[in-house]
Nucleic acid binder design. Structure first.
Lengths: 138, 138
DNA sequence: TCCATGTAGATGCAGTTGCATCAATATTGG
DNA sequence: CCAATATTGATGCAACTGCATCTACATGGA
């Protein structure tokens, strides 16, 4: 718990210092970007492992910021389809170097650095297996 | 991040279901209990890796719940000395089985279970080394 | 001694979270 | 076809967080 909080706070501080949105936004923007055909909130929910109400409000913030557009969900009047806007793509891209640099700084020099793959494997088992790897490179 | 959130939420749910206080309280109660001569908030701050205002308010809640008593700090009129009350000891003790059981459930059957020591070592490097192990057994 | 600076801890405010619940649409069994 | 139930997503409320700032006491130097 301590480790994850330390890491998260380091990343959050770096993003804030760079005038960028908080960390949660990154994952959400990334997942939405991966679905050019649009993605529905309930699908995001399982991918991001967020509670329903949390995601609902996160989306509201992203929409208000102009990073995400809501559209109707074909064939289901309850749902909606989310798409990334150009601004959304731009900010996600801008976030990555800052995010990555903060991570690098945190891990540099620790045992976890050389054994990252092993650490990731161990932790992945805890998330209920769930989702595919999250490869946020470019 | 996902792994730690999953674990934390599982523990929080278990504690709440048992009518017990949230997880943060456990660590704080534990650390205070370890210092029968009393401990000062600023010392707790470094042990718990909490921000100053967060700890200040956590202590306020613990005091209001009757689990912690504030006393004057000898030789420093600004400070205070915290002690656990009997109720505090009791609730900390009551929390542990629930806490532990939730952890066991989360780790059971994962690779992390058999490699707990390795995982702990990797993660510990990330917390800035900091503190001694946190052995909340009895 | 007095002032400048440093440290301990508290707090107002705005934003976020968890919980419970709601409205709207979908689906299913009779 | 309709009523019962399930699913999707939103929201009021109370609690909690981060940030900036504040008060009170402490300490060091002129």
């Amino acid at each position: 718990m301590r480790a994850s909080r330390q890491v998260r706070e380091a990343v959050e501080r770096a993003l804030k210092a760079a005038g960028l949105p908080p960390l949660d936004w990154y994952d959400a923007l990334w997942e939405i970007e991966q679905a050019p055909e649009g993605i529905r909130p309930n699908a995001l929910e399982t991918r991001l492992l967020l509670p329903q109400y949390g995601l609902s409000r996160l989306i509201a913030r992203l929409v208000e910021a102009g990073y995400v557009a809501r559209g109707p969900s074909p064939g289901d009047g309850r749902g909606q389809l989310l798409h990334l806007t150009d601004a959304g793509r731009a900010v996600r891209r801008a976030m990555w170097p800052v995010y990555g640099a903060a991570l690098t700084r945190t891990f540099a020099g620790t045992r976890a650095e050389s054994e990252a793959a092993r650490l990731a494997a161990l932790l992945k088992g805890l998330t209920g297996e769930g989702r595919p790897p999250q490869p946020p490179i470019a």
